[in-house]
């Protein structure tokens, strides 16, 4: 008996002379190469993939803006650094993107944070007291023990950076109601609750929530939408080579375990 893959998304009709070659491919019912390709943009196609419907123009515009905002996380972003690390040693190019994916998957500025933040919008709603209570419980280690900060916020900052505010303003204008509008209005209150600045991950999470993407879809989208910048920076560093890339030659200080723990305590780090 032939084992099959069950799917709601993808259907193929085979060429008459070769069952291993598709003559027509349909995504959620639409003919991909015959009908969609000449007409739809990248954002509309992405929306169709994850929602099984084509978006209204305003939703497509928002998703496109999110894709642009994420396309280059910045050369100092850990995921981009990971890709560049692969490149300077001339690892495989896919290794650069695998490194960017792995490092971009985390709970600080990564895809896990976006997924959790999308879920938090659903759990806590627009009730500032609920957000305050969650932040307090997190701070006191009562729940979400894996999290060292409120998802969607950056514990290394005191307020949202200018680019984060610019992204939020742009997104909120494209989608005046919804989570983005609330975030735009309540940002300062939420930052007081979190004890640190709103992060791009939080802004993007609000956009994904407004677009109706569940946390797991938001996580996937965030992972791959950030790869273009990592790829371009990796190629640049590949050309320049390891000699012109930081090695942090003087940074490492190897200490006996007891001295190390004492130092971390003095620095106020978690042990």
């Amino acid at each position: 008996m032939t084992e099959t893959i069950t799917t709601r998304l993808w259907h193929e009709e085979a060429e008459e002379d070769n069952p291993f070659v598709a003559r027509r491919c349909r995504l959620a019912g639409y003919d991909v190469y015959g009908a969609l390709l000449p007409r739809v943009g990248w954002a509309e196609f992405l929306y169709l993939l994850f929602r099984e419907e084509l978006p209204e123009p305003a939703a497509a515009r928002l998703l496109e803006a999110v894709a642009v905002a994420l396309a280059h996380p910045g050369i100092r972003d850990p995921s981009v650094r990971a890709a560049m690390n692969a490149a300077v040693g001339r690892s495989h190019r896919a290794a650069a993107l695998m490194a960017a994916l792995a490092v971009g998957a985390g709970r600080l500025g990564g895809a896990a944070e976006v997924a959790r933040a999308v879920a938090l919008f659903g759990e806590l709603g627009r009730d500032l007291d609920a957000w305050r209570d969650r932040a307090r419980r997190l701070d006191e280690g009562e729940d979400e023990s894996d999290w060292e900060h409120l998802p969607g916020f950056d514990p290394r900052t005191e307020r949202a950076s200018t680019p984060v505010c610019q992204a939020l303003e742009t997104f909120a204008k494209l989608r005046p109601g919804g989570w983005l509008g609330w975030l735009w209005a309540a940002r300062l209150d939420l930052e007081a609750v979190a004890g640190c600045g709103l992060a791009l991950s939080g802004v993007v999470a609000a956009a994904f929530a407004d677009l109706g993407f569940p946390p797991e879809a938001a996580e996937m989208l965030y992972l791959f939408l950030r790869l273009p910048g990592a790829a371009a920076q990796a190629l640049e560093q590949e050309r320049l080579g390891w000699r012109r890339y930081p090695f942090f030659a003087e940074a490492l200080e190897h200490l006996p375990a007891a001295d190390y723990r004492a130092l971390l305590q003095r620095l106020g780090e978690r042990l």
Binding site: T2, E3, T4, I5, T6, T7, R8, L9, W10, H11, E12, E13, A14, P19, F20, V21, A22, R26, A28, G29, E52
Partner: peptide, 10 residues
Amino acid sequence: SCDCIRYVGK
């Protein structure tokens, strides 16, 4: 092969 896909969508 193409007939390994069991399509249950729209």
